[in-house]
Design a protein around this nucleic acid. Structure first.
Lengths: 212, 212
DNA sequence: ATAAGACTAATACTTTAGTTGTAAATAATG
DNA sequence: CATTATTTACAACTAAAGTATTAGTCTTAT
């Protein structure tokens, strides 16, 4: 009995995936969510989920924030990222943020099923093409990803608000904490990212931007 | 006799476009390119091109750089941007950077042909939906390019250094002026760009990614 | 039970950022 | 040529950013 969660904000694609996967697994239960919030809620209510199929572009998932949240909050549940974009940069970030596999949306159904079975068995999975490309990548970008993965959820949240151009005072109000607390978080973020100013932090984060 | 240039790095899409457009125009010649370099070369060799169908995501076209190059180098040739993304921000930038039309890739073929005819006649073209949305946008944001054009050379230079993550002190040293002068320049830049912190200025500039 | 890490926050402090007013040099306009 | 306007320059001042230290409360893991 396998229990999947499909997290994607495109209803058509979710349905297509359900239709394609159902005949290929003996016993299967498929849950669905369409935003980061609903994904986290579903995970909380269903701790026995075996695998998450995660889209990178859901509401609330700006950049890699959704993936980071899910892999940090539920490190025991394997995540397969399903995405339309398959640039090698994105793939390398995805894998270093803790996903167990990257499945381009154009992958044939049978292959997707193979991928999911492998990932459920604790393996990592990539298309042959991507596996080769990943091996050729230099460590620079991966370092950045690891730095950011070290951040706690709160720290990432603060970084995200800095990245939105907010002042410390505004961030404090947004998070319902004092400015002192915000500063403490920011200092921690700077140490982990190895920068000294919010401007540099923003520039670093911009490198991860997925904006199309 | 109409002469088009389709600039898109996706061969399948180019072919689909050629196949769809050929029957809809009496006399038509369609050239193709798949990168910014090949686009500029083709334009140089064919000054009589009537219309460019430009994709935003070709190699060399990071952000809006490709569009800016083409419209600045060949202001007399109308450009129709063809893109999968149709967020209103992107559309408004595209239009303010001199494109004559924005055609979502999901537009029906017949409508695309209409659009291209209109654009060749010197009109601008948008889907009805986008036209409405564009009208609702705050005009200040649309004219980011013009705002930046208002900057004096010194101001632009300072902005560039801010964008590199330098401190005021470092900028002052770089330009051989005092920190006070740098601050004055920065204040002027902020007024013109309508922001109030360097972080916001960097974010604004990043949208254009004009450096390099 | 204890140790470790995360979140919160206060205090005190230093540095950086940004505003405003003012004046010299420079371009441009009539 | 004279006179405006713009650019560049700077100081004094206020606001915001950032560091360091300490410390209390949680949760989680050992």
């Amino acid at each position: 009995m396998a229990k999947f969660l499909i997290a994607d904000d495109h209803p058509l694609f979710r349905e297509a995936l359900v239709g394609a996967l159902s005949p290929l697994f003996e016993k299967i239960e498929i849950l669905q969510s369409d935003s980061l919030d609903s994904t986290l809620t579903t995970l909380q209510e269903n701790p026995d989920i075996d695998l998450i199929l995660l889209d990178l572009h859901m509401p609330g998932c700006e950049n890699f924030y959704g993936l980071i949240r899910v892999t940090q909050d539920y490190p025991q549940i394997p995540v397969a990222v399903v995405s339309a974009s398959d640039s090698i940069e994105v793939v390398s970030y995805v894998m270093s943020f803790g996903a167990k596999g990257f499945v381009p949306k154009s992958t044939p159904t049978l292959l997707i099923a193979d991928a999911l079975r492998a990932i459920m068995n604790g393996e990592t999975w990539l298309t042959d093409e991507l596996r080769v490309q990943i091996a050729e990548i230099d460590g620079d970008e991966i370092n950045l990803a690891q730095k950011i993965a070290e951040l706690t959820p709160k720290q990432f949240q603060v970084l995200k608000l800095i990245h939105d151009g907010l002042l410390n005072k505004q961030i404090a109000h947004e998070l319902n904490v004092t400015e002192a607390t915000v500063k403490a978080h920011i200092s921690a973020v700077f140490r982990k990212l190895d920068v000294n100013t919010r401007t540099q932090a923003v520039l670093l984060l911009k490198k991860l931007s997925l904006e199309d």
